[in-house]
Write a protein that binds this DNA or RNA. Structure first.
Lengths: 351, 351
DNA sequence: AATTTAAATCGAAACGCTTCGACTAAGCGC
DNA sequence: GCGCTTAGTCGAAGCGTTTCGATTTAAATT
């Protein structure tokens, strides 16, 4: 593999001159530039990133702190980071995937090893030790999501509180009054998950304002727990005619529980969730949902980080994207007077 | 950030001694080792990867050559590489995500920049220029998938030919005789996609052996084309009672086309595909499918590469995983004599 | 024509590590 | 007691860049 010295020799100039041609840090005469470029082309020279990084502290490598296994890997997360990867690649950065198994220690290691210039965090908690640590270190990073106190940090997040309200409101306008909410567990408090907490707030607020019962069940994120929780909701509230849930991972177990009750969606039972369109359209029936702008968030998150790294902005950009309802085929009208299919069935069965 | 020199000074030894303590390349007395380790701990020292890599040519960074946009990002692919990422992380490697937009040139750049020790390829074609280039360079890599000629390369692949046969056979045993196949386009020939070609071979072979009509439609991988192709199949062959398709990306458009015909799955129409379980279980109804062992393939692929890098094996390992059918709820029995729902409907409508 | 200024280039010192050759002080056989 | 090995350590030379004076050359100013 040719080095810069080879190029310099071939072009008959000093190594530093070659470097200046490449970086543009100092003026170089046109004639010299031509000769150097020719030599580079002839030799098939590529600068060595390690050496460059060692000398200049700039590696053009960004790490994506990837959520570990707990919550499972969701379709939305896939979209987040394939979008992020795309932007990084366009801007000439390489993307390092970092699965943060080992907690804080691991992330510090990453920052100290010198390979990575900046970090993009996903699955940020309200009190996130990673964020504290990075802040203390003054290490450059941006977030998809946000903590409770985000002074001086760039982030892009989604307005889950409004999103849930929109779900509820839509169902309410369709005539539903008994709406169940199935939301991720927001505990443990000290590191609670923002979207869960904010969803709870939104749901409670809407139900109080609308004067309808606040029916809620929180569950762990795994399939099994979600499945049980859905069944428990349906058991405990026979008057339910609709359900709101908040993630693509809940989709399968929730729908299964509903089907097992012989409730048809949307004829007997309405369902709204917060999903990326790609996923919502894959379901049968296609699900009416709040559009989770996963691709947009991935793009913006990466863009924010890169801008910060390149020093274009000193003031952090903080963005909370507004929700938008996309009506598909998982909800139906329910009037006040009408007896729900479920109630009718219970009645027939003599319960 | 402390350097090795700082550690050496603190421990009262030479820099090289610190290096030997860390690498074990030469014997170090127990007393010295203790002192060095203490100094490292006190200073919170972490070796700089760039410097290490520059001096030693070992970076512990692996790149995953990530499929570009054409085929879209599928759930299976997500599983491939989150599995790969997991293994890499366990073995102390960092995973660089590389979206191969710029074709061959890009990949060469990656190899020449010195950052990356080895490559894991996904979405390998039968004749893959990337593979040719890497082979010519003698650059270490492994594949998920395989080309036509794989001499000297480690890979893990899935037996798509047998997989399709298993699909067909299962449907055949349920009594289906008119089975449609919806498969990715295997052209252009010069870089054809292995799974597509092998699926075609498998399907044709089974149909010939079983003496049933060989009903097939190839389509591009995008949603729209798949949707049209599914409709065309259903149009052209009114006697169809079952369909086989090969990827999670086809799922939504295929199911939608089927639903639009007012065919119920599985009562009126049976469906089998090749999917990771996680995905198959998310559908409504859960899909009977050949299990695509995506996680296993990701694990093994990465493991093969790392073994190769660490010199444990000189002989390449080549693995083709066998298919396994998982019965869920998307297929139903069809007897010879029974008139299909669809035929019955056509009849009623006087066609 | 003498002097100042700017453009273009060079040489060498980092950057933080690995690795090689050399040196010292033991331990060993004879 | 003499050379011989070997464990343990050190110093210094890279690895391939960037970057900072310093130097040379050409152009501009007086």
């Amino acid at each position: 593999m040719p080095t810069m010295a080879d190029v310099a020799r071939r072009a008959g100039v000093a190594v530093s001159t070659v470097s200046y041609v490449l970086s543009g840090a100092r003026p170089v005469s046109e004639r010299t530039r031509q000769r150097v470029m020719a030599a580079i082309a002839e030799l098939g020279y590529h600068p060595n990133i390690l050496a460059r990084g060692l000398a200049s502290k700039r590696t053009r490598v960004i790490a994506l702190l990837f959520p570990s296994g707990t919550r499972g890997l969701s379709h939305d997360q896939l979209e987040f980071f394939s979008a992020a990867a795309e932007v990084a690649s366009q801007r000439g950065y390489a993307l390092l995937l970092w699965t943060t198994l080992g907690g804080d220690a691991e992330i510090l290691r990453l920052t100290e090893e010198g390979l990575v210039e900046g970090l993009l965090l996903m699955e940020v908690r309200l009190h996130d030790p990673r964020v504290e640590a990075l802040k203390a270190l003054g290490y450059p990073f941006a977030m998809i999501g946000r903590t409770e106190c985000n002074d001086g940090i760039s982030y892009v997040d989604f307005d889950f509180e409004q999103a849930i309200r929109l779900c509820d409101q839509y169902l309410y306008e369709l005539g539903h009054r008994h709406i169940a909410h199935l939301i991720y567990s927001p505990v443990p408090i000290e590191q609670s998950y923002g979207p869960a907490v904010r969803s709870l707030v939104g749901a409670r607020a809407f139900c109080e304002e609308a004067g309808i019962p606040y029916i809620i069940r929180v569950s762990e994120a795994d399939i099994e727990a979600t499945y049980r929780a859905a069944h428990e909701l349906l058991d405990s509230y026979p008057s339910l005619t609709a359900m709101v849930f908040v993630s693509d991972l809940q989709c399968a177990p929730v729908m299964q529980a509903i089907h097992e009750r012989r409730l048809r969606v949307p004829e007997d039972f309405s369902v709204v969730s917060i999903l990326s369109s790609r996923f919502a359209e894959m379901m049968a029936p296609p699900l009416t949902a709040i559009e989770l702008p996963a691709v947009e968030m991935g793009h913006i998150g990466m863009e924010l980080l890169i801008r910060y790294l390149e020093g274009d902005e000193c003031v952090p950009t903080q963005l909370v994207l507004p929700p938008r309802l996309v009506v598909r085929q998982s909800c139906s009208v329910r009037t006040h007077t009408e007896l729900s299919m479920q109630e009718a069935k219970c009645f027939q069965e003599g319960r």
